[in-house]
């Protein structure tokens, strides 16, 4: 199911089953039908990353949607427009899954002509959005965030990571929203 809400930067693909349970934002974070814990999420969750023009990715999303519905692909998100604060000139599509199923997921992507294998572990992504991380610091600089507000954002990011993942490693994972 393609979830295209204009107020969101991203366009998402979730199965209908997952998208109909808003109280459980991590319902798609599974491996072989079993939900991942926070610890397992940091160890195994990640995404295939590739680029395209928005129209190309819209077309691809339509083709991949049945695989999301059948839960062969847990989740997909892609940009509505290029993220200029990162100097990206094309939209990015992220195809999420557990690393233990990433090869099967890539085989599906390859059927649709996707070339270029670039696997980003979720732990790497989180580190980039921590204080001093590549993406967080670039984002703050681009948006001219004040020193005071920037410090608050950094502290909040660190606190959220610790509260979510470090303090509750064995809890069911509800995901990470940067």
């Amino acid at each position: 199911m393609i979830i295209d809400q204009p107020r969101s930067w991203y366009i998402f693909l979730f199965s209908k089953k997952c998208s109909y349970c808003p109280s459980d934002p991590g319902a798609y974070i599974m491996y072989k039908g079993k939900r991942l814990t926070n610890k397992e999420y940091l160890e195994h969750w990640g995404k295939w990353v590739f680029f395209g023009e928005k129209e190309e990715l819209d077309e691809l999303a339509e083709k991949l949607d049945p695989f999301v519905e059948s839960e062969e692909i847990p989740c997909i998100k892609y940009d509505r427009s290029p993220q200029k604060w990162f100097n990206l000139e094309q939209c990015v599509m992220c195809v999420y899954c557990d690393d233990r199923q990433r090869d099967e997921v890539f085989k599906i992507l390859a059927k649709f002509g996707i070339k270029g294998k670039r696997w980003a572990p979720e732990m790497e992504v989180i580190q980039k959005w921590m204080p001093g991380g590549l993406n967080l610091e670039r984002w703050l600089a681009f948006h001219n965030v004040s020193d005071e507000e920037g410090e608050k954002i950094r502290k909040d990011a660190k606190k959220k990571f610790e509260e979510t993942f470090l303090n509750r490693p064995n809890d069911i994972c509800f995901g990470w929203q940067q």
């Binding site: 990353v49 680029f51 990162f86 990206l88 270029g116 980003a120 590549l134």
Partner: peptide
Amino acid sequence: DEVDIMSAFAAG
């Protein structure tokens, strides 16, 4: 082998 090179920002 296949080598892919991209902006690290995109992986975030």
